[in-house]
Amino acid sequence: MTAPTKSSAVHQAPDPTSGLLGTSRADQFFKGLLTLAALLIPLLLLALFYELAHGSAPAIAEFGLKFLTDDVWDPVAEIYGAWPLLFGTLLTSFIALVLAVPLSLGVAIYLTEFAPEFIRKPVAMLIELLAAIPSVVYGLWGIFVLIPILRSTVFPFFRDTLGFLPFFDGPIYGPSVLSASLILTIMIMPFIMSVSRSVLLAVPNSQREASLALGATRWEAVRTVIVPYARSGIIGAIILGLGRALGETMAVTMLIGNRHEISASLFAPGYTMAAVIANEFSEAGTTLHIASLTYVALLLFVVTVIVNAGARLLIWRVGRKSGG
């Protein structure tokens, strides 16, 4: 027992009920402080949920669950339905994930297993820097650089080659679901890359050696041993990226076109939950409009929680299956 007390403490009779903690006043105080801090977070989450539910009560009373499936959003007629918003959020995040995961994983694998020593750290650092850029900057860059390129070159190319698919058909505006998805891809890549990289770095060298010593090539070792070993951590990295994509507001608002409708074409504008809240909250006048926007916020909150919980379940099951 080496509690940081003065020498006088030596003469005090030890309290038989105390463990390592609580042997000194300072310890007790510190423990209390930490407990408080630890409890504060879940409390905050509950308070947030309560506020959202409370604030959206009028809209819930008016529209109920039909809010999730209705696609009209008309503040003048006071009719609100969030289906296009829900769809837009899920679609942009999904496309971003589909594009970002293979790219970021490829980069992470290259940087941990194949790249020459002298470029590993600098490149990883540069990519991590991308995560620090404010999203409004991404939005501006998207408007002034990305969209002109997409509109003049990339989108017409897609339409010419893949135009037989409904996703790549129709008029090209610039601001669109696809533009927003691409900016999201760029924004979530650093997260997925950086977390996957640290997970891959944490794979014990003995696993690499075991595989190579059995006659595996570098690539076979990556495919059959290293990535499977890091599997649950990589899924965690993907979840992190997905969480960010679902909630991303500024850059998406600037690039998605903000039109409250669902179109088969990815060239058409769309809307997301986060974007509609950012756009309309300051101008919402009526109680029902504010309540509907709060309802959207509640929906976004619930979607994020469900996605995270589902992901955790997935990690848990993957972890149990591999027995590692």
Partner: peptide, 9 residues
Amino acid sequence: FQRPNVFPK
């Protein structure tokens, strides 16, 4: 190897 390095399979 020095330490058993079975694959988690």
